[in-house]
Amino acid sequence: MSCAAIIPDLALYLYGELSAESEERLEQHCSECPECAAELQRYRHMLQACDAAAVPEPPQLLAECRHELARAVESSRDVVPPEPSNWFTRELRSLLSHSVGFRVPVGALALVAIGFFGARLAPQFGSGSPVQAGLLNVRSVQADASGRVQIAVDHTRRQTVSGSIDDPEVRKLLIEALHDESNAGVRVESVDMLKDHAALADVRNALVDRLQNDPNPGVRLKAIEGLKTFGGDPQVRQTLARVLENDANPGVRIQAIDLLTAHRDQSLVGVLQSVMRKEDNQYVRLKVRGALEDMRASVGTF
């Protein structure tokens, strides 16, 4: 390989952005060509010196910016209320805005519907006061001449749905349950039931989402377990790489490495090198180093 062909790759090599093949070619060439090795060293020096040229923000600037943003958000709130993204809430809001007279029945109907899909959310009804149990929203309060009070209350209704996991409705409810932020136990149970059905696209997407976004490591571990036969799927790999770089839990990161390295491809090298730069868990580092060595890639980029 000629020196001219090496030069464009020097910086990319230092950033860990070359394919394993190109990286190997470059290292081979530099080991035999002192001029290119010296030029690589100059690029390295230049990029290291760039760190010193960074312009840090003045210490108080962030606090000032946050304060100003809070004020701006507050003043813009009255002008443009953010539109709900959820179609259901949006429809409901637009219906409610048409006529005050429809508010109660529409609201009640809507909440019964939520009750069907979201039975898991419904608190246990007590036999006594509805105020303790299913109360979600007081729609109106009226007093008549005799002093009696009429209160219109919307509440959810618990409904039990049973069936096989092959039933799309049952799966849909289980996937819904994965988003119950108030109850990690329900999420763990649901992900456990779903994890053996990752061959179905809706389940796989839900597992990928939970692996990436669930705050509970138990849920994330179950989700990754469910994805273990899909280590070659590009979307899953992309998520695994993100998890390996960002997940706060070392156990989840280790699972991610194992799954990623079971199907090697060249883009993995960059991810692993990037992880080596910031990973602080010794065991994870060991695993990443082992994988890089197995792939005959350099462990560091600087």
């Binding site: 953010p82 709900p84 993204s85 959820n86 809430t89 988003h179 932020e181 989402d209 976004n213 669930d214 705050p215 960002n246 997940d247 706060a248």
Partner: peptide, 14 residues
């Protein structure tokens, strides 16, 4: 990473 980002986004969207 430790944040439930999707949850926060949905809440903020509301």
């Amino acid at each position: 990473a430790p944040l439930d980002e999707a949850g926060l986004i949905r809440a903020a969207q509301q």
